[in-house]
Nucleic acid binder design. Structure first.
Lengths: 172, 172
DNA sequence: AGCTTATAGTTTGACATCAAACTAAACGCC
DNA sequence: GGCGTTTAGTTTGATGTCAAACTATAAGCT
């Protein structure tokens, strides 16, 4: 049943009713995804991208970039966390974190202290302002999640997340 | 059972057995992911990232970047496709495609002809060399998929992909 | 103590990506 | 036929990311 089906990549179907010339084997608007249609990797990327875009639009309402959200949450739940720990938890290289933390500190959302016992590492904590922003972002994220739940369906949700975790933890 | 569990973000657990100072509420090496642990968006990102990294390593064996793979497949399955159609099918902005196609043409994997009926659009097709490269990449991708299947389990695989497709198509 | 190695964070350079501005061609309408 | 609008693709500028090189501290060994 799959294999020749159109997947309607972007909801609005930006491809439109265009007709490729006769060299193009005369498909109308539907694209043949070939093996991609059956493969986890491709569909994982497309789903992630779509979900990210949706969340991105939402988080503009609170004036924050979506990437900041996980960062703030992790600092809130693990007060005093170091940047390296944070970057691992967040699945990003520590060097990517440098400008993010810099920005959060500059805007007064995060506080950063050198440790006395090991003066290489910083300890990160949320400021009250940071907590306030996080609260707003969390509300925003909950709306997003409710939306995702609606698409996934409560029945499969738990298993779905379990599989995602398993992939993140066990692949390769 | 969730909520305080460690997810072992990166296999090797780079976080190690470090102890945060007393300001840090004394967690040892385990990170509290808070609500992130239950949320689809975060886990989707982590899974995608992990799968992508794994595939990236694999595709180095055939000397191709992972992003080229979907592009070549889509051209192969839809001969004469235009760049705009391709970018939509691939879930990327058309402007991102310009350098990719340029590179593929330069390396003789893709052939690109102006249409006579509409001289704005190009038609893309694989060259024989492109087909050969695609064959190798496909083998490589199949190994990757087998790996993913192993993690996901055959029982849930079909449903899992269905949900991913549903998210890509229906979110927001 | 002094040397070697490991670790925390930053810097730098390469890329991929998007969005918006742009160019050229086509379409549509009068 | 000419003029405004749409469309295909490119260019440009901003961002976010990684990996590798770097700086500074720390830890271990002899």
């Amino acid at each position: 049943m799959l294999g020749k089906r159109e997947v309607t990549v972007h909801g609005t179907n930006g491809i439109g009713g265009r007709e490729r010339g006769r060299n193009g084997e005369g498909l109308a608007s539907s694209i043949d995804f070939g093996p991609l249609a059956h493969w986890v990797g491709f569909n994982l990327r497309m789903a992630q991208e779509a979900a990210f875009q949706a969340f991105s639009r939402r988080s503009q309402d609170v004036g924050e970039s979506p990437g900041r959200f996980a960062t703030l949450t992790l600092i809130a739940r693990n007060p005093g966390i170091s940047q390296t720990e944070l970057s691992h938890a967040n699945g990003r290289d520590k060097s990517s974190l440098t400008p993010v933390v810099e920005d959060l500190v500059r805007r007064g959302l995060v506080e950063r202290k050198r440790m006395n016992s090991d003066r290489r590492t910083y300890r990160l904590n949320l400021t009250p302002a940071g907590k306030k922003v996080l609260t707003m972002m969390t509300r925003c994220a909950r709306r997003h999640e409710r939306n995702l739940d609606y698409v996934i369906g409560v029945r499969d949700r738990k298993r779905f997340i379990q599989i995602l975790k398993k992939i993140a933890a066990e692949i390769e």
